[in-house]
């Protein structure tokens, strides 16, 4: 293509500035420049494909399964749309499992918030230099060792002939321990076979997931606001109630989403520590096995999703995500 040819076809003098194309790379970049949406599609096709096919696809398959039912007589799965499987969730034994799991998740979240807040507050506002590093390390350290080892270790700690019983015997406080274990519902034969034990282990395992977002939120609370609050005559409690706590709320909510959903989905801890009463994860695991009751397992698996959606909606209404 000669300059003369360009001159003859294009009336604008700028056209002479266009260089001749030098191959496939130029042509591609020209295409992407003229049609930016093509570049967008090329870049997004892989991650979007992953998200829709693998991620949402499996969720859709799960949802679909939950609308099937199992034939009472033959035990075969009937592939016809029905809500019968969801109705089965309302049976007392199944409701027990859902209520048990949600209550435990709520208790763990509450416990983690109460225990985690002072730690996060100190680490964010007072710890300096190597102390700060130590705090980070201390919070993160449990995450570096195997989850199973930690749970087994806790089983030994909580056992009837374990270190806690031994220590309470030593200081003559075994009456207190026995009193706690004699409590209805949450008590049991020993700490490791009671709900208290399960709660303690959950609390230990998920606590870092509560502390870290809380600490991040507390670090973002500007010092100037605390000073302003003090200048205006607020007491420490008032400052905490009206300044620090509301500003730390997004962190607490973020942490609670972690602890709540992780507890709800776990099926290992209640199997090792506790009274063998099932949690949702265990029920799903057992129902999809030899039982072949995949519809009910799927319906059970949908429950945490719905609860989390409700939870997130409430959190959003409360303005928890405004700061994110």
């Amino acid at each position: 293509m000669s300059l003369a040819a360009i001159d003859s076809t294009s009336p604008t003098p700028q056209a002479t500035a266009i260089l001749p194309q030098r191959g496939i790379g130029d042509r591609l970049s020209a295409l992407f420049w003229r049609r930016p949406e093509i570049l967008l599609v090329v870049l997004l096709i892989l991650p979007l494909g992953w998200l829709t096919v693998v991620y949402l696809g499996s969720l859709a398959a799960l949802l679909l399964q939950s609308f099937y039912s199992i034939d009472e007589f033959s035990g075969l799965i009937v592939r016809e749309f029905t809500l019968r499987t969801y109705l089965e969730l309302l049976r007392p034994a199944n409701m027990d499992i859902i209520i048990r799991t949600v209550t435990m998740a709520a208790a763990v979240t509450l416990g983690a918030a109460v225990i985690g807040f002072p730690i996060a507050y100190y680490a964010a506002r007072y710890a300096r230099g190597s102390w700060k590093a130590l705090f980070y390390l201390g919070v993160m350290l449990p995450l570096w060792s195997s989850y199973l080892v930690k749970v087994y270790a806790w089983k030994l700690i909580l056992a009837r002939e374990g270190i806690i019983t031994w220590a309470t015997d030593l200081i003559g406080a075994s009456a207190v321990l026995n009193g706690i274990l004699a409590l209805p519902v949450i008590g049991g034969n020993s700490l490791s076979t009671s709900y208290i034990g399960t709660w303690l282990v959950f609390l230990y395992v998920w606590l870092p997931f509560m502390i870290l977002p809380m600490q991040a939120a507390l670090e973002r609370v500007p010092q100037s606001m605390l000073e302003a609050s003090a200048d205006l005559g607020a007491s420490r409690l008032q400052t905490f109630r009206t300044v620090v706590f509301p500003l730390a709320m997004p962190g607490i909510i973020a942490g609670s989403i972690f602890t709540f959903s992780l507890t709800m989905g776990d099926y290992i801890i209640p199997q090792i520590v506790g009274s063998s009463r099932r949690f949702i994860g265990q029920a799903v695991y057992q129902l999809q096995g030899t039982a072949g009751n995949i519809p009910l397992a799927a319906a059970f698996a949908v429950v945490p999703i719905i609860i989390m959606l409700i939870y997130l909606t409430i959190a959003r209404r409360k303005g928890a995500f405004d700061a994110l």
């Binding site: 007392p92 034994a93 009463r277 009910l296």
Partner: peptide, 11 residues
């Protein structure tokens, strides 16, 4: 399976 889950759950 489902009934034994219930029994262990105290039903």
């Amino acid at each position: 399976v489902s009934d034994y889950i219930g029994v262990i759950g105290g039903r």
